[in-house]
């Protein structure tokens, strides 16, 4: 599903990703943790080419992301092709990024109708089903400004799911939320992970969620993946000293 190999990303002279490789199989749920500034967000953003990469390669479903091979070299792909690839990858942002000038339902059907060309009726039917699934059956016509953070994030999840993505990316989806609404978002994500078998990469420090839903934990530090293990092993007997330290701080 995801094949990332030696991904290097620099911002000017600052090397933020120093050769990140990660393999994710279909229906697998991978949780990424690591200290602030270790490059988690940057890595997630590289996967749908919101950031260009300086070296390495990223493939989703066997398709190279953001680049084309020409004479053995990688050149950036066209805007159109990149857009097409992004349509296959759902992304949920820390700060929701809902479209404030559109209702919850309009947010959800925006991309299916305009990117995929699905008819409004059909998109609305699917969109309503999705909003029902995330527990927002009574909020179809509500604008994001009138929704709580937890509700907004659930709309954002529905919006990403509406494109039937092969892979879902979550960047700290609950860290901008009030504690009392974190649970409702995590419940939706758990049901995606466990019941729906969605392939997900989740940057999160919600260890309860990770233990329950993750198939694999990934520890990032200073632009590198320093440890990968199933949750039980990862939490109970981490191999790396850095991981132990970090876990002791957040648990």
């Amino acid at each position: 599903m995801l094949h990332a190999e030696g991904v290097v990303k620099r911002f000017g002279r600052l090397e933020v990703l120093k050769g990140v490789s990660l393999e994710v199989k279909p229906r697998e749920v991978v949780c990424v943790i690591g200290p602030s500034g270790s490059g988690k967000t940057t890595f997630i953003r590289c996967i749908n080419h919101l950031e260009k990469i300086d070296a390495g390669r990223i493939e989703v479903n066997g398709h190279l992301i953001g680049y084309r091979e020409r004479n053995g070299k990688l050149v950036e792909d066209t805007e159109r092709n990149i857009a097409r690839q992004r349509a296959e990858i759902g992304m949920v942002f820390q700060r929701f990024n809902l479209f404030p000038h559109k209702t919850a339902l309009e947010n959800v059907i925006e991309a299916p109708t305009h990117v995929r060309g699905v008819t409004k009726d059909q998109a609305a039917r699917q969109g309503k089903a999705l909003l029902e699934r995330v527990g927002l059956a009574d909020k179809f016509d509500t604008y994001p400004g009138k929704l709580s953070g937890g509700q907004q994030q659930r709309v954002a999840i529905a919006r990403a799911l509406a494109m039937n993505p092969a892979l879902m990316l979550f960047d700290e989806p609950t860290s901008a939320l009030d504690p009392e609404v974190i649970g409702e978002v995590l419940d939706v994500m758990k049901s995606l992970a466990i019941d729906m078998g969605t392939t997900m990469i989740v940057v999160t420090h919600e260890m309860g969620f990770a233990r329950e839903a993750a198939d694999r934990m990934v520890m990032m530090d200073d632009g590198r993946i320093i440890e990968e293990a199933p949750p039980a092993q990862f939490f109970d007997s981490p191999r790396e000293e850095r991981t132990k330290q970090f876990l002791s701080k957040i648990l």
């Binding site: 159109r80 992004r86 349509a87 942002f93 990024n97 479209f99 305009h114 990117v115």
Partner: peptide, 18 residues
């Protein structure tokens, strides 16, 4: 306009002009 708006739109597969 918040930069996140353009990024959210792009992440849904919208080309830049759209």
């Amino acid at each position: 306009v918040d930069r996140g708006q353009m990024e959210a739109a792009k992440s849904l597969g919208m080309p830049y002009p759209m």
